[in-house]
Amino acid sequence: MILTYLGEKIGTDKQGYLLDFKQWNEELADLIAQNDQFELTSAHWEVIHFVRSFYLQYNTSPAIRALTKAMKAEFGEEKASSRYLYRLFPEGPAKQATKYAGLPKPARCI
C-alpha cells in the first residue's frame, strides 16, 4: 500500500503500517487514522506518543501487558488499565497505537 503525503509517496505494509518508522509525523498519523475512519483524540495522542517513545528507547513495540506496566510508571494507575486502553483502541491497543505511531506491528501481538 502507498500513502500520498505532501506529494510524496510513503510505503506501508498491507495493513497500513509504515515501512519506515522515521517517516512518521503527526499529520501522517492523522492520514493513516482517516483511512481507517478512526478519529484521534488527545487521549489517543497521549498513548501514541508514549508507544513511540517506548519504541525509540527500547527498540521494540510493547505488547499490551508491557504497555500497561510502562504507562503505569509514567501516568499512574487510572490510565494503566487494559480496559482504559481497549476503550481507546478497540482493535487492540498494542496493534492500533503502534500503527498510528508509525511503528512496526508488534510481533508479540497481545
Binding site: Q57, T60, A66, K69, A70
Partner: peptide, 15 residues
C-alpha cells in the same frame, strides 16, 4: 544489525 540489546532495559515491564 538491529540493536536488540536496547530492549534489555525494558525487562521490568515484562516482569
Amino acid at each position: 544489525t538491529k540493536d536488540y540489546l536496547k530492549t534489555f532495559a525494558a525487562f521490568e515491564f515484562y516482569d
